[in-house]
Amino acid sequence: MDAWWVDRRVYGVPSERDRGPKPGHVYVELVGGPLDGMLLDVTGWPSQEVVDGAMLMSEHGQFRPGGRSEYEPAEADAGAGGVGRFVWHGDVP
Rank of each mutant, 00 (worst) to 15 (best):
D2N: 13
D2I: 06
W4A: 12
W5Y: 15
V6M: 10
V6Q: 11
R8W: 00
R9H: 06
V10I: 05
G12S: 04
V13M: 12
V13K: 01
P14H: 06
S15Q: 07
R19G: 10
R19D: 10
G20P: 02
P21A: 12
P23R: 12
G24K: 06
H25R: 15
V26E: 14
Y27C: 05
Y27E: 04
Y27N: 03
E29D: 13
L30E: 04
L30R: 02
V31F: 00
V31Q: 08
G33R: 04
G33H: 01
P34E: 06
P34A: 14
L35M: 09
L35I: 08
D36I: 08
M38L: 05
M38Q: 09
L40I: 02
D41T: 04
V42A: 10
V42F: 08
T43G: 12
T43V: 09
G44S: 15
G44E: 11
G44Y: 14
W45V: 07
S47W: 08
Q48C: 08
Q48F: 13
E49P: 00
V50P: 00
G53Y: 03
A54Y: 01
A54K: 09
M55G: 07
L56N: 02
M57W: 15
M57T: 02
S58D: 14
S58I: 11
E59G: 15
G61A: 13
G61T: 03
R64H: 09
P65N: 06
G66N: 05
R68Y: 15
R68N: 01
E70Y: 07
E70Q: 12
E70C: 06
Y71T: 10
Y71S: 10
E72W: 01
E75P: 01
E75I: 07
A76P: 00
A76N: 00
D77V: 02
A80I: 00
A80H: 07
A80T: 09
G82H: 08
G82S: 07
G82D: 12
V83G: 09
V83Y: 14
V83S: 13
G84Y: 09
G84F: 04
R85M: 07
F86L: 12
V87Q: 00
W88E: 00
P93Q: 13
